[in-house]
Computed example of a mutant assay.
Amino acid sequence: MPESYAAVMAADGSENPPWKDLPDSTPSVLVVDDSEFFADMMASEIENGSSFETISCYDGETALEKIERNDIACIVSDYRMDPVDGIELLETVRDEYGAIPFIILTGQGGEEVAIEAIRLGATDYVTKEMIIEGEEFSLLLNRIEQSVNHTMAQTELARRKELIETQRDNLEFLNEVLRHDIRNDLQIISAYADRLEDHVDQAGRADLETIQQSTDNAIELTKTTDKVAEIMLRQEVDRQAVSIRDIITEEIETIRAADPNATVEVVGEIPDVEVLAGQMIDAVFRNLLKNAVQHNDKREPEITVSATEQEEVLEVRVADNGPGISEELQQSIFGKGERGLESEGTGIGLHLVATLVDDYDGDVRIEDNDPEGSVFVVELQLADA
């Protein structure tokens, strides 16, 4: 038995794609009327005037069998039928097949029937007498098309929403594994490597330092990935007035402590102002400073940080004496997964920077440093602008 359109539309329509994605399926309009002549005539006219094939039947029980065995895109049913009338058929369809479009045909003056049908979930109604007289047949065709298209759109929307929710759940699970299981193991490796310092001879010290450095880098990567996942999982953008001077100063002190070979100087004073940002603004400057040190080809990296107030923004510049970044790479380096400077990293740190700054309605760009190296320029909106 082929998977029917009715089955696709069952429940909230979220578990299966619309009929157009089903293999070897042709959607049909099911016409139900206890007058064989009228049912066959309607089916023929609908098929000739639309893109649908049609199936006609002459009672509600047979209609349910047709729904089960065929790909039904829409049902057009008379109200007065025995032993199962149009309202009873509608209720059964809604209970068993969910959102499949259902248009009921009423007699002259059948407004009460139409109101009851709409209350029970009918998609629309058309007066049967006016169809016979030819006055509403084009209207019926139009309503069939609109009903099917609307229901397909709602089904696809529900399917995509469910897919997004599933992806969110998977991302949350993976983030939990990353934060707890993987990071915990890395921290254990780091602790044991530190304990080996007094037991490794000079020949093995370089290898031990490589293990320690790589482990530290991996731990930092899990923290950065955690921040990226937090951004992806949030419901709304976090944007408020944030005092920026202490944040930048703290990140500078952290990078100085982490790499004694690096020189990090502040040019001038960092203005004591508030910018429009969020709780993760520290990750912007942490990653820019780490990038300036880790991707520097000098034995002693030299980093300068400066900040100036302009008309409506605070401009922060992080300059280094590294190998520089080509103009071509400057255009793409903030992309997710982009790598530069012969890096062995993932490129996720700079992607995080760009994502956060964009969320804060700011801007980040790269300029050439004189005489060598690069300058990362961040512009953040002043809170009182």
Results as ranks from 00 to 15, higher is better:
V284D: 03
R159S: 06
D181V: 06
N184C: 00
L139W: 08
P83R: 15
V264M: 04
M232Y: 15
G349K: 15
V305E: 00
N175W: 05
I247D: 00
A99G: 14
W19M: 09
I115S: 11
Q331T: 10
D259V: 07
D216Y: 10
E197K: 12
V316I: 10
G49C: 05
L329M: 15
L208Y: 05
L141R: 03
P301W: 00
I189F: 06
G278E: 05
A203R: 06
E91V: 04
D320Y: 00
E156A: 09
Q381C: 09
I164E: 14
Y79C: 13
D169M: 08
E61K: 09
S77T: 13
K161T: 13
S50M: 03
T123Y: 14
A73R: 07
Y5W: 05
Q212I: 08
L329C: 13
L341H: 02
E176A: 06
W19I: 07
V84N: 03
V375R: 01
G340S: 15
A153S: 12
D21A: 14
R245C: 01
K227Y: 06
W19E: 05
A39N: 08
Q294R: 13
G60H: 05
V264Y: 02
P323C: 08
Q108N: 12
S4M: 02
L90P: 13
N184Q: 09
E250F: 04
A10M: 02
M280W: 14
I270D: 00
H295E: 01
S35D: 09
R205C: 01
E65M: 03
L380K: 12
S326N: 01
R94Q: 04
S332I: 10
K20I: 08
S214L: 02
N16Y: 06
Q331S: 11
T210N: 04
T26F: 14
P271L: 02
D201H: 07
E236D: 09
D24F: 12
P301Y: 01
T62M: 07
A73K: 08
K128Q: 14
Q279Y: 14
G324P: 13
E338L: 08
K161A: 14
S50W: 00
N175H: 09
M130H: 09
N142G: 12
V84Q: 07
L22M: 12
L22I: 04
F173T: 10
S35T: 11
N175M: 07
E379I: 11
L221F: 01
F52P: 13
L221K: 15
I252P: 15
G337K: 09
P260E: 04
S44D: 10
Y58W: 15
D169G: 06
L341V: 09
I247N: 09
E129W: 00
